[in-house]
């Protein structure tokens, strides 16, 4: 095979966008009557906004060669706490902050546990919090959903702007704007700040980071707090969209988030991954589900296909790494 550094760099950065475009064309051709309707597109965005936020947090963790299994539980705990607070009549600006704060707290526990207890791999610490936080979620709710939120709390998850062009319920969802703001903010943080660069350095070679005077432990705590924060924000969106905090929310969400990050071209070995890739990864999973749904393919086949896509995406990463080593 001819090796061209320019082509490989281009494909590494934008190949995923090409995949996305091809998928959209294929789905649009199979169901032109349904797929391209504003309502369907609005739905895709709304349904995947929560996953997008959680996956963005997961990206930061995976760049450090870590993993956070607790995001689904964190999302659920954030959701039910803010729902309980909302029902208890806490002023809505405070309620809005509660979800992300719960996320930050869980992230802090993950980060501190990982660095202080020196557990051999973040898998173990976050497997622990996956269970513990889910347990706490059931404890505070007695396992029952909490519904009936203040309209201001629901706003981000539910509102959309028809801009006078779209017929309701189609329009630009507020959640899309939140995802865009988070994505741009995270991109800026990762690319333009020293801490963002240190996150990549830790993923590339933790020893190099350490001897360069980087406080690796402190950065890792920040990383898991960012991930928790994003999960909490995801909880806020989902609570708004469903008008409730249900303790079963986000079960297996961590796996979807990891899949989106990996499909988006991040390396499980750390040091590689982009915000744009993750958004594309989320959209690929969302489009795959949507495309199969509107073609009446069973959800069982959707699982099979998503599994195949994950394996394929990681295989691409392996091939790419092997090519890099052989040079």
């Amino acid at each position: 095979m001819v090796y061209s550094p320019k082509l490989s760099k281009f494909l590494e950065s934008y190949g995923i966008v090409l995949v996305l475009i091809v998928m959209m064309v294929v789905i649009a051709m199979t169901r032109p009557d349904v797929f391209l309707t504003p309502q369907n597109l609005t739905n895709i965005i709304k349904q995947n906004a929560t996953l997008a936020l959680v996956a963005l947090g997961m990206l930061v963790v995976i760049i450090t060669a870590g993993i956070d299994l607790s995001v689904g539980s964190t999302l659920a705990l954030s959701m039910v706490t803010l729902a309980i607070a909302s029902k208890a009549g806490v002023p809505w600006p405070v309620v809005l902050v509660i979800g992300p704060m719960v996320g930050l707290a869980v992230g802090f526990v993950n980060g501190v546990g990982l660095t202080w207890l020196k557990l051999p791999h973040p898998f173990i610490m976050t497997l622990g919090t996956l269970n513990a936080v889910r347990g706490i979620t059931y404890l505070v709710t007695d396992g029952a959903p909490v519904s009936g939120l203040q309209p201001e709390v629901r706003y981000l998850g539910q509102a959309y702007y028809d801009l006078g062009i779209f017929a309701p319920p189609a329009g630009i969802p507020a959640s899309l704007i939140l995802v865009a703001v988070c994505a741009i903010g995270l991109w800026y943080f990762l690319e333009k700040t020293n801490i963002g660069r240190h996150i990549y350095a830790i993923g590339g070679n933790p020893q190099a980071a350490r001897v360069s005077g980087i406080n690796v432990e402190r950065v890792l705590v920040i990383v898991y707090m960012i991930c928790g924060f994003m999960a909490g924000l995801g909880g806020l969106l989902l609570a708004g969209r469903t008008d409730s905090g249900f303790p079963n929310a986000g079960i297996m969400l961590e796996l979807d988030a990891i899949a989106a990050v990996i499909i988006g071209g991040a390396s499980f070995f750390g040091g590689r991954g982009t915000v744009m890739g993750v958004l594309a990864g989320v959209l690929i999973m969302g489009l795959l589900r949507n495309g199969l749904n509107i073609n009446n393919v069973s959800s069982f086949w959707q699982m099979v296909l998503i599994g195949v896509v994950i394996i394929f995406a990681v295989w691409i990463d392996v091939v790419r790494r092997r090519a890099a080593v052989r040079r």
């Binding site: 020293n194 660069r197 240190h198 990549y200 350095a201 993923g203 590339g204 070679n205 190099a208 980071a209 360069s212 005077g213 980087i214 040091g271 590689r272």
Partner: peptide
Amino acid sequence: LAGNMAIYENIYLG
């Protein structure tokens, strides 16, 4: 060195 990062970033890392 962090292999995933550019030469100039490695030089000024930290």
